[in-house]
């Protein structure tokens, strides 16, 4: 009995590790193609889809946390996204009581601004028009929350989604010191009587 259990554990171990290696290989390849604008090999893409999408392995990957690669901040570090509101000439933003949630909000800001640039967020929404509507709702919801949170007395609020563009190391060495705030989207909300 103990031997059988050990054998089963062994089989599972090999399967589990093999599965992780395959997922990581594809993730690396996918990121490489995206980064260097190389079209993905259709055979590889189809094999990946057939192996890991819409079957029992999808559930396994979700449950075990092995469904994604581990290339954190790779192949490059993305620019920081920043959500800034303007109420009555005052710069306002989201308020948090804790660092962890503030950081999570920044992750969200980064992902939202990343969508504005690449239009690819890896979400299950495939219809681009629907996705655009979804993000429009997201932008407005954040603006309303920031407006209420800051007790903005003005009846309008302008919200912008920006990317902080620091000079690169090379540019810095060449003498450039100032950073730019590149606005990717602006939202205006107006408070109306109910």
């Amino acid at each position: 009995m103990a031997n059988r259990k050990q054998r089963l554990t062994n089989y599972w171990g090999w399967f589990h590790i093999g599965f992780i290696i395959l997922v990581c290989c594809y993730s690396t390849y996918h990121k490489y193609c995206r980064f260097y604008n190389v079209p993905e090999n259709q055979a590889i893409k189809k094999t990946n889809m057939a192996l890991f999408t819409g079957n029992v392995l999808t559930y396994y990957s979700r449950l075990s946390g092995t469904g994604a690669g581990y290339g954190f901040f790779a192949p490059q570090i993305k620019s920081t996204g920043l959500i800034i509101g303007d109420c009555d000439g005052n710069r306002i933003g989201a308020r948090f009581k804790n660092f962890e949630t503030m950081m999570r909000f920044n992750v969200m800001a980064g992902r939202v601004t990343d969508y504005l640039i690449t239009k690819d967020d890896g979400s299950p929404i495939t219809d681009s028009a629907l996705k655009s509507k979804f993000y429009d709702l997201v932008f407005k919801s954040i603006a309303v929350k920031v407006y209420n949170q800051n007790q903005c007395s003005q009846d309008t609020l302008h919200m912008s989604y920006n990317i902080i563009n620091f000079p690169t190391l090379r540019q810095y060495r060449a003498g450039r010191r100032s950073y730019q705030l590149i606005t990717t989207k602006e939202v205006s909300i107006v408070k109306t009587a109910e």
Binding site: C24, S27, T28, K31, Y32, F35, G69, Y70, G71, F72, F73, A74, P75, Q76, I77, T168, L169, R170
Partner: peptide, 18 residues
């Protein structure tokens, strides 16, 4: 390994820009 390997693929990690 894969975390390091994916960084190696990006030139920004190799020239210090990242």
């Amino acid at each position: 390994f894969f975390s390091g390997f994916e960084k190696l693929l990006g030139y920004n990690w190799r020239n210090g820009e990242s």
